[in-house]
Each structure stands twice: as C-alpha cells, then as structure tokens.
Design a protein around this nucleic acid. Structure first.
Length: 206
DNA sequence: CGTTGGATTGGCT
DNA sequence: GCCAATCCAACGC
C-alpha cells in the first residue's frame, strides 16, 4: 500500500498547468465522506488546460461555471457534462488566471468495495479509469466545486510517490475539438489504470 | 427565450 | 468501432 505522505502545499499548484499536470502523476488523492470508509487513489493520468487554450472552459473568460478556475490555486473545479457525468480539476496558476489540471484516471488504493458500490462494477481497472468514472467512484459532484484541497477535509492531495519523467508519456488530449496540437495529456507509461482512448506511446525526452 | 453541442460512458454492431 | 443517453452552459436572436 502506498502511503499518502505529506499534504501538497499551496505553492505546488501555483505553477502553469502543463507543469503541474505531469507532477500530479503518482500523487495520492484522498476522499473523506461522512459515515463512509476513507477512499484514496493514485493519480495515473492528467490533462492541462489554460486560459489562452481554445479547448479550455476558461478560454471565453469568467462565467458562473468557470469562476472557480480563475480563483486561488489548490481548489477543485467540478463541472457537469453530457447530461450525466462530473469531471474534476485541480485549479493551478496564480489567482486570476484561468488554468487547471483535469484528473482523468487513478489506481484505487483504499476503499475499493465502496467504489465498487458507487460504480456498479467489479474490476478494479474499471473503477477510476476515466474522468467521469473517477468522480463517480469517489462520490464527487457539483457540491464539491470550489473545495480547497490544501486546507479542506473532504478532499486532499498528498505527496505519494512521483513518477519519474522517463516514465511519463505525453499525448494529445482526449475528446476536444480544438487545441489538439497541444500535447498536454500525461500518463504513467504502461499503467493498467489509465482510461480508454489511445494508449500513450510518445516517450518524453528525459 | 430557443438552439447547440459537450474535457464521457456503456452497450451494441 | 459506433452511437444514444440526458442535462445544462454558452451563445444568438
């Protein structure tokens, strides 16, 4: 079992999202819910989004939905999509800048049975391998939007064991129509818990 | 106000 | 591999 380790400090998130995204691989996301077992996952897949990036929700400026993205770093940005799924992001960069990192997949560490109940599937690899699945497994919904990951209790991010740059693959982001030229999807090479969608092949120069 | 399509997923061909 | 499901934010009139 991987130890969560110490909590990531505010400054960790106060950097450009393409820098934070690969650094989040191997980190541990802990979920605490009232009257439920503690849930935790090891992050294995992320994507970066920035304000000058047409694929980003923040591209068109501040709106009610994207307000959290422009707020202080280290908070959670949760959005609802396709009429049924939630996706969660970690807000990055300095306050006033609309950037974030989408958490796309994780390896379940603690609370697998609780996750199986929430997801309705058995296979550990199907519990958190996708942004919608990850939110469902951890019970993250719109009420978690804006939660502080640095100081809050419901969700927290811990140091875990970072993935060596040589084990990080870079690929185009999934499911976007514009901004496809920015290779801002980061995955742990060969990890069985990454989402479906093209497996990563482009090795990052180390 | 009406329209459009989405940072997805699961089931079926 | 393809496509429907199912809300609602964003945008145009």
């Amino acid at each position: 079992m991987i130890r969560p380790g110490r909590r990531l400090p505010r400054w960790f998130f106060e950097r450009p999202s393409p820098e934070v995204a690969p650094d989040l691989l191997g980190r541990v996301l802990v979920r605490r819910l009232p009257d439920a077992a503690t849930l935790s996952v090891r992050i294995v897949e992320t994507e970066a989004y920035q304000e000058d990036d047409p694929a980003s929700h923040s591209y068109r400026g501040r709106t009610a939905r994207t307000e959290v993205m422009f707020g202080p770093p280290g908070r959670l940005y949760v959005y609802f999509t396709y009429g049924m799924h939630f996706c969660m992001n970690v807000v990055t960069g300095v306050e006033g800048e609309g950037s974030a990192v989408l958490l796309r997949a994780g390896e379940p560490l603690e609370g697998l049975d609780e996750m199986r109940m929430r997801r309705g599937v058995d296979d550990a690899r199907a519990l958190c391998s996708g942004p919608g699945r990850l939110c469902q497994a951890l019970g993250v919904t719109r009420t978690d939007n804006g939660t502080d990951l640095v100081a809050g209790n419901a969700l927290s991010l811990h140091a875990g064991m970072p993935v060596r740059p040589g084990d990080v693959a870079v690929t185009p982001r999934v499911g976007i129509r514009s901004g496809i030229e920015r290779p801002w999807r980061f995955v742990r090479v060969g990890d069985p818990f990454v989402s479906r969608g093209r497996p990563a092949r482009i090795a990052r120069p180390s």
